[in-house]
Computed example of a mutant assay.
Amino acid sequence: MTVVQHMWIGSTSTAQIPGGIWRLNRSAGGDWADSTAQRMLTADHPSFLALHPAADRLFAVGEGDPGTVSSYAVDAECALRRTAVTGSGGAGPCHLLVHPQGHWLYASNYGDGSLGAIALTEAGDVSDHVVSLPHAGSGPVSGRQDGPHAHSANLSAGGEFLIVADLGTDQLRAYPLDMGRPDPEPILTDLPPGTGPRHLVVAGDFVYVAGELSGEVLVLAWDSDGGRGEVIQRVAASTLPGRSADVHQLSHLLAHRDSLVVGVRGADAISTFSVSEDGSHIELTGEVVTAAWPRHHEIVGSELLVAGERADEVAIHPIADGVIGPVRASVALPTPMFILPV
């Protein structure tokens, strides 16, 4: 029997091409470079996707104002059928996280900075029960930090808190959870002004944060009881010059074995950090040029796949002995924003 591995790709809408959810297939022993992208449906700015932990459901944001979140049934042939749509609890949702128990879905709304907690039905669909948790504040970077901008969320190591990275206020917002439902009053951790926290990785007693605006990866010692962190290290994520833009804006941060892998837009690179055995220290150990404006990336087996938003392609990097090599191939796809392996 031929085993097929596939990925869901979310793409944004442009003036020329509508956004949509795409699929890449690879047969066992095959090569992602031989894949072609197949549009499964057209949708409005489905820039972030997530899977239900138990049900055959795929979730997608609708990055508008007001924002939406849709649930899709996935059949045996990977065809998608929308089962429900609801509000995201705010504007411009850009990140989704499903609670491991499958009862709640969290939408980070970049546009107005709110967090939306969406109750899921027994079938795994989004419901109209949406808890919207607004925030207030600002930061020093004009045009990017004039107000709150929730950019992503993750669970604390023990699952007691939902930690939201707020790019606009330079804060981590830790919401205590009660059976997955967030308490309306978060515990705040202030980061250095101008950090612009985008994505975070939780690993035991430490939290690692990609500072989109400062171009740094931060290490925080995390107090699991108090729900707060303390910055203990800041490291620049790239030494390369700008390619598509004269900036170093970090995007997705990913943990892989004893390393961290982060995308650097502008320099259009993927940077790798080694993590010390106790988790308290990181060191920049590798940089490799990738597709223009790397929005998101995932490691699948011995390869790194990168969504090059401005390159209209998914770039494929080999990984050997933990080292990410130069791009060896790519798959054409308009404005890819998110990669979700299945």
Rank of each mutant, 00 (worst) to 15 (best):
V288Y: 01
T189N: 03
D223M: 07
H281P: 00
P100C: 10
W32E: 04
A210N: 10
V61D: 10
S156D: 09
S35M: 08
E298A: 14
R81L: 11
F273T: 00
P182L: 11
L220M: 14
S114P: 00
A43T: 05
T86E: 07
S71I: 02
L305T: 03
P193T: 09
E185F: 00
T42K: 03
G10A: 14
G116R: 13
G64I: 04
R82M: 15
L80I: 12
D246P: 01
D268I: 02
G168T: 03
E309D: 04
T195E: 04
D312Y: 08
A37G: 15
S70M: 02
E298N: 01
A329E: 13
D205W: 02
A320C: 01
A203E: 12
G286A: 12
T239E: 12
T68V: 10
Y110A: 07
E287W: 07
R228H: 09
F59N: 09
T68L: 13
G286D: 13
A91S: 15
A84N: 12
H135G: 05
H256E: 08
P184G: 11
H6F: 10
T36Y: 12
L200D: 02
D44W: 02
R265E: 04
S132W: 01
I118R: 10
G143Q: 03
Y110L: 10
G211Y: 05
S214D: 15
R295P: 01
L58M: 08
G62V: 10
R295T: 04
L333E: 07
D183H: 15
A237W: 02
G194L: 10
I324W: 11
L254G: 02
G229E: 07
S71R: 06
S274L: 07
T335R: 15
L80G: 09
S271H: 05
L80F: 11
Q38C: 05
D312S: 14
I232L: 13
L177H: 07
H103C: 06
I21G: 04
C78M: 06
R198L: 03
S224I: 03
M337A: 14
A237S: 13
G226H: 06
S330C: 06
M337C: 14
H45Y: 05
H256F: 11
G194P: 07
E63L: 02
L155T: 01
D65E: 14
H297T: 03
S108Q: 07
R26Q: 14
V323E: 14
G263Y: 03
